[in-house]
Design a protein around this nucleic acid. Structure first.
Lengths: 245, 245
DNA sequence: TCAATGCATATGTCCGGACAATCGAACTAC
DNA sequence: GTAGTTCGATTGTCCGGACATATGCATTGA
């Protein structure tokens, strides 16, 4: 029952992180069954040769992830819900790939245009200033799934069409050192226009799922504004929320 | 420029929380302008008569909220993006009320039914066992906005119809000591059936925004399963995401 | 002129301890 | 038997210090 935990003090990986990873793995693997107590922090710290703050930091990170619940006077329990993964700033490309769908991308437009008022406001640039405009069709199993229209401020990225077709936009950003920080999203629905229906292989007026997103990097700079439409029969937004306590 | 910070050691409110609230207020209020450095932790601790871990805990909580960014060797900066509020486990009722829309609720169904396979799986109860079924129509300005169909395990809540019409389901749960913890959501879209169109004042086949949600309390117990449909012309999901680092 | 080095600065990690607040259960008194 | 009380267990908060590590800038060298 006492699962084997150990830390490597010679590793550059922080001790609290080593511990939290092992605990997370144990929960994932089932060694730590839902509802079971984790044992008190003091004793756990002693067993591992760590200080209590370090152990607390490890446990806290899992509490923040929603895997554990602490209760004063009781102990720390493994939450027994089917927590998959909390909502992250997800990329459609990564989502599809994780689902084993082998996503393909077709670049429809890759050009530079003057920013409309809407785009300028979203990206925080001057109206009519140059921005990149990229329009892509995302396919899975050869079927169109989504139409992605993105605007990117100039100078951030080398928007190579070949690269856009072989990977996702977020990956390209991360590859050039942009660290994504937050995004503001709006999800809605509406009927397809004739042009949209044609692109996605639906009929005019068919329900479409729409998503608009402005993404910011860690300096607070807007790095992307996107207007996406999804075929609801092929895609829906699925995620786990945690209550902020 | 040196904003006035102070802590009350006689207060039962934790010191780190007092500090984080004051910092958050200063950011909100504009005393701490976006991009500005926060000053080093050591000096801040000395100025307030606190220890560095306490100050760090306060700062960390704001970093987790996405208001601050720490950079080793540089300092802690106020993020200058229009962070409104990170995605929370939101209640439609609260959302509408916050938007000043004076929500109204009409209870269509409030009964006990045997759980279908779908409901039983979502709530983790036995198939055909009794569950509450509540169907409501949510209106704003007298116009229907959404149709809410919820299933609740028995014994959790006194589902008084009058109370359901005057407040939201989540508030009723919190009022009886249920602490919401997480939820699994799916957002999609589809065309309205004839019955749905009639209820919401739309036409058959009109695009509808759909949301399904299972909500868990802090013991991991499912406390609610809901299938909602929204009129996309009246409502869309809008939220802020943070990247988990 | 430009690149490499060194240094000050700030956060990141970790320690060991102290006391308070809360929960649950056993115990006691009525 | 039931209600109230006490007590042990456990997490919550806070302290003061130590060293590691990444960053930016000034200095130095080719």
């Amino acid at each position: 029952m006492s699962l084997e935990l150990s830390v490597d003090r010679s590793s550059p990986v922080p001790l609290y992180f080593q511990l939290s990873q092992q605990l997370e793995a144990a929960i994932e693997h089932g060694s730590l069954t839902p509802g079971s107590l984790l044992g008190n922090e003091i004793e756990l710290a002693a067993r591992l040769g760590l200080s209590r703050p370090t152990v607390r930091q490890a446990i806290q990170s899992l509490v923040d992830k929603g895997l554990l619940v602490r209760r004063r006077g009781v102990g720390t329990q493994v939450v027994h819900s089917q927590v998959k993964r909390p909502l992250e700033l997800s990329s459609l490309y990564d989502d599809l790939e994780a689902a084993g769908q082998r996503p393909a991308t077709k670049v429809l437009v890759n050009t530079v245009v003057p920013a409309t008022a809407e785009v300028a406001a979203a990206l925080g640039v001057a109206e009519d200033s140059d921005v990149h405009r990229v329009e892509r069709l995302r396919l899975a199993h050869g079927e169109p799934m989504a139409h992605l229209c993105n605007f990117i401020p100039p100078g951030l990225l080398d928007l190579d069409t070949a690269q856009l077709e072989s990977t996702g936009l977020y990956r390209m950003m991360r590859a050039v050192g942009i660290t994504l920080h937050s995004a503001r999203q709006t999800i809605g629905a509406r009927g397809a226009t004739a042009a949209e229906a044609d692109r996605l292989g639906e009929q005019e007026g068919a329900p479409l799922l729409t998503m608009q997103r402005v993404t910011f990097d860690d300096t607070g700079r807007a790095v992307e504004y996107g207007t996406h439409t999804y075929r609801p029969s092929r895609y829906s937004f699925e995620f786990q929320l945690l209550v902020r306590s």
